[in-house]
Computed example of a mutant assay.
Amino acid sequence: MADKFDEATQKELATFLEQEQAQARVHSSIHQFTSMCWDKCITGTPSTSFSRNEVNCISNCVERFLDTSLFMVKKIEEQRQQLNS
Rank of each mutant, 00 (worst) to 15 (best):
V73K: 04
M72W: 02
S28G: 03
E54L: 08
N84S: 03
R25Q: 06
T9G: 07
T45Q: 12
K11G: 07
F50N: 06
A8Q: 14
Q32C: 10
K74M: 01
F33L: 14
F5G: 04
C41K: 05
T43P: 15
T43K: 15
K11S: 08
I30W: 04
I42R: 10
A14P: 15
L17C: 03
D39C: 12
S85C: 05
F5S: 08
K4Q: 07
N60Q: 03
C37Q: 00
Q23A: 01
E18W: 04
E77P: 03
A2M: 15
A24M: 02
Q23S: 00
Q82S: 12
Q82L: 10
C37R: 00
K75I: 01
T15F: 13
E54Q: 04
Q79K: 07
L66D: 01
S29Y: 04
E78K: 14
C61V: 06
K74C: 03
E18I: 08
T34V: 07
E78N: 13
F65M: 09
T45I: 13
E7N: 11
N60L: 07
D39N: 11
S69A: 14
I76T: 11
V73Q: 01
Q81Y: 13
D6N: 09
M1F: 15
M72H: 06
K40G: 02
M72R: 08
C37V: 05
M1T: 12
Q32A: 02
Q23M: 01
V62T: 06
E63Y: 08
L17D: 03
W38M: 02
L83G: 00
S49K: 02
K74R: 07
R64N: 01
E77L: 05
R52V: 01
Q21K: 10
E77C: 06
T68K: 03
F5Y: 08
I42T: 09
N56E: 12
S35C: 13
I58H: 01
T45F: 09
D6E: 05
E12M: 15
F65W: 08
V62C: 01
Q81H: 14
Q10S: 08
V55G: 11
N56Q: 14
E54N: 05
Q19G: 11
A22H: 03
Q19T: 10
Q32R: 11
M72F: 04
A2V: 15
S47F: 13
E7C: 06
S35T: 11
R25A: 09
T45D: 10
W38G: 04
Q21E: 02
H31Y: 15
E20W: 00
R52H: 06
S85P: 03
F50E: 03
V55F: 12
E78P: 11
V26S: 00
K11T: 01
I42S: 08
M1Q: 13
C37L: 00
C57I: 06
V55T: 12
S28P: 00
C37S: 00
L17P: 00
M36E: 14
Q81S: 15
S51I: 05
E77Q: 09
Q10T: 07
Q10C: 02
A22C: 05
S47H: 14
K4Y: 13
Q21P: 00
K11R: 12
D67G: 10
L83R: 00
R64H: 04
F5Q: 06
D6L: 02
S47I: 11
